[in-house]
């Protein structure tokens, strides 16, 4: 079957099998390997991408179901060569070690800050509770997201003055 969707702002149309999962469509068909694929059972969250602005686990969405929708992946976070503040935060605060969970963490973090620009530690932990990191113990991930929130708050104050 044919499927068309927008991926990081580009319209793509591909011939696929109906059973193809969105995660494999992105990685194997489009070559966007930034989105990782781990447990395959919607538990680990490394495959999180956005569909119409909401984080979803792409191992549990068919590419066909994403047809006609707007998909955004970790490759779409950077703008004009500039890292998104959540990406910068992960660098500043050592939010990753092996980096396997990172794409999913970044997409969830960005969605959280878009809805709630100054989340509490508890709210951050809630937001990433569907995602597993075997390296960091989560503390540095929480700090990285807080870094991004403060950075954006400062930038907003800066641009308002």
């Amino acid at each position: 079957m044919q499927v068309s969707m927008s991926v990081n702002g580009d319209e793509v149309t591909e011939e696929i099998e109906a059973r193809m999962l969105l995660v494999h469509f992105l990685r194997d068909q489009l070559g966007l390997t930034g989105t990782h694929w781990g447990c395959d059972t919607s538990n680990c969250g490394t495959c999180v991408v956005w569909m119409d602005g909401e984080p979803v686990k792409s191992c549990t969405v068919l590419a066909a179901m994403a047809g006609g929708h707007e998909v955004r992946t970790v490759e779409g976070l950077e703008r004009d060569g500039e890292l998104d503040p959540v990406q910068q935060g992960f660098m500043e605060c050592h939010g990753l070690q092996c980096g396997f969970c990172t794409p999913g963490m970044l997409m969830t973090a960005r969605a959280l800050l878009d809805r709630n620009p100054s989340p509490s530690t508890d709210e951050i932990r809630q937001a990433i509770s569907g995602q597993i990191c075997r390296c960091t113990g989560y503390a540095t991930i929480v700090r990285s997201i807080q870094w991004a929130a403060s950075y954006e708050a400062a930038a907003t104050v800066g641009s308002a003055s």
Partner: peptide, 9 residues
């Protein structure tokens, strides 16, 4: 119920 990302779907 599940986690926030699962709850989106």
């Amino acid at each position: 119920i599940a986690d926030p990302v699962v709850r989106n779907r």
